[in-house]
């Protein structure tokens, strides 16, 4: 059965959700969401170090959405569509994003994340430094560092899933734990 965004989003945000957003992704919305997200993290009494790490990961996650999300193939016709949520269970914070991607980039994303997940913490830090000092900017302005940075800052594995929408589109879910 084809992927159903509303069903995915309802399930995702059913429990422990302290912050959520779904809809159009613009620079202004990223700014507003970051402000709201930071306020929520403090409101829930997380310690400052955790808030900083979570905020950093949130910046990268939302900017990944800004640079790479595409339209929703059904329903609202925004240029960029994405979803974002925080789930807090005891002291465990999950940061989750979701966006549609073209079906043909799924293997590339999967390979990239698998490679990062194979590394231990020190190796992730080394990779970060290597890309920082060597890699050129991509045409979207990202340094190719975003995913590595999220893994480095959170010390978390990149937990991901791809859901097939049709022969052209897939839906990409990314979760990290802080």
């Amino acid at each position: 059965m084809a992927f159903d965004f509303e069903e995915w989003y309802n399930n995702l945000t059913k429990y422990d959700t302290i912050f959520k957003y779904s809809g159009e992704i613009t620079s202004e919305i990223v700014t507003k969401t970051l402000d709201d997200a930071e306020a929520i993290l403090f409101e829930y009494g997380l310690d400052k170090k955790k808030v900083k790490r979570a905020y950093n990961a949130t910046v990268e996650a939302l900017q990944n959405l800004f640079h790479h999300s595409i339209t929703k193939p059904d329903g609202e016709q925004y240029n960029k569509f994405g979803a974002f949520c925080f789930r807090l269970h005891h002291d465990n914070l999950d940061i989750i994003t979701g966006n549609y991607v073209m079906f043909d980039i799924v293997p590339i994303l999967r390979d990239r994340m698998n490679q990062i997940n194979l590394l231990d913490e020190d190796e992730v830090k080394e990779l970060y430094k290597k890309i920082l000092s060597n890699e050129e900017f991509s045409d979207k302005g990202g340094g190719g560092l975003g995913m590595v940075d999220i893994a480095k800052r959170t010390g978390s594995k990149l937990q991901y899933a791809f859901f097939e929408f049709d022969e052209k589109y897939s839906f990409f879910e990314l979760k990290v734990n802080v």
Partner: peptide, 12 residues
């Protein structure tokens, strides 16, 4: 206080 990855390259 914070910098994102695209800034990290520019700071370099």
């Amino acid at each position: 206080e914070y910098f994102n990855t695209s800034s990290s390259k520019c700071i370099l």
